[in-house]
């Protein structure tokens, strides 16, 4: 078992970064915590600080003001960390990719491990994406 596998063996803690988004992905991520989807049965929970997190969830197109902060967060994160880009905006910039303030999709700024497309992706899709990412290693 390598170091990375060892780190991600048990309960993953998630940190959520909402970029310049329309809020849809944000509430679908929150929905994962509520009784119908209940992500805590996999030992996952949202945490308040990136320094406690194993997974960084990023959604929304990243504008110029967010870019520096996303980089800061990534540098502050304990390594190894898994980065998941959520939603059409997180994956490619989506409908806002031609905007004046667009500073590039997430994978142009930090390395991304998994993409979950959809506008917004259903909570089932978000769960399936993260579970798939865990099984991949």
């Amino acid at each position: 078992m390598g170091f990375k596998e060892y780190c991600f063996k048990k309960s993953l803690w998630l940190f959520h970064f909402g970029g310049a988004s329309c809020n849809n992905c944000d509430i679908e991520i929150l929905d994962c915590l509520t009784p119908r989807y209940d992500v805590e049965r996999f030992g996952m929970q949202l945490v308040g600080s990136i320094r406690h997190a194993d997974v960084l969830l990023v959604n929304g197109s990243i504008n110029r003001r967010d870019k520096a902060r996303l980089l800061d967060l990534y540098h502050q994160a304990p390594k190894p960390i898994l980065v998941v880009a959520i939603g059409a905006c997180g994956c490619t910039g989506g409908i806002f990719a031609e905007g004046d303030t667009f500073a590039g999709p997430v994978d142009k700024i930090i390395p991304v491990d998994a993409y979950i497309p959809g506008c917004p992706p259903k909570p089932e899709a978000i769960l399936a994406g993260i579970v798939k990412l865990l099984n991949k290693k």
Binding site: G19, A20, S21, G60, S61, N63, R65, D66, R69, I95, F96, E98, G99, D100, T101, F102
Partner: peptide, 14 residues
């Protein structure tokens, strides 16, 4: 604010 600006009014014109 400004962390969420996407330039929608301008995008709309195209």
């Amino acid at each position: 604010t400004g962390y969420n600006h996407r330039g929608i009014e301008k995008l709309s014109q195209s």
